[in-house]
Design a protein around this nucleic acid. Structure first.
Length: 108
DNA sequence: GGATTGACGTGTC
DNA sequence: AGACACGCCAATC
């Protein structure tokens, strides 16, 4: 079966550099999905079972909020991972999000 | 195959 | 400033 919408999302997310984050909308645009930001998040749900694994913890919503943290093994895992990469997270929000934001369109 | 859903985004009240 | 509403679009049931 052909690569589906998911594979495109996975590929972009895997391109996110360590210590950086991006938003669902940005990914959606990069794959040509436009305003289908929801689809990106939907794909990320499967990302847990995707192989190779996708750094979904580097993907947050446009506000820098860790909206999908509850979809990880543990709700705190996402924050832990981000902090490991040097990203400051407070109240489930990525601090300095604007600076840490990585736009896939700039890479692709 | 129609209806529902969803890790979102932007705007409005 | 916080809460609510609508829009997008593909996958799943």
């Amino acid at each position: 079966m052909e690569q589906s919408f998911y594979d495109a999302v996975y590929d972009v997310v895997r391109l996110i550099p360590k210590g950086r984050v991006t938003s669902y909308g940005a990914i959606a645009k990069s794959i040509g999905a436009g305003g289908s930001a929801r689809m990106v998040g939907y794909a990320m749900n499967h990302a847990q079972e995707a192989d190779p694994p996708v750094p979904a913890h580097r993907v947050v919503n446009s506000s820098g909020l860790l909206t999908g943290k509850f979809h990880f093994a543990t709700p705190t895992l996402m924050q832990e991972m981000l902090e490991q990469e040097g990203i400051q997270v407070k109240e489930d929000k990525v601090q300095n999000f604007k600076k840490l934001f990585w736009d896939p369109l700039q890479e692709i």
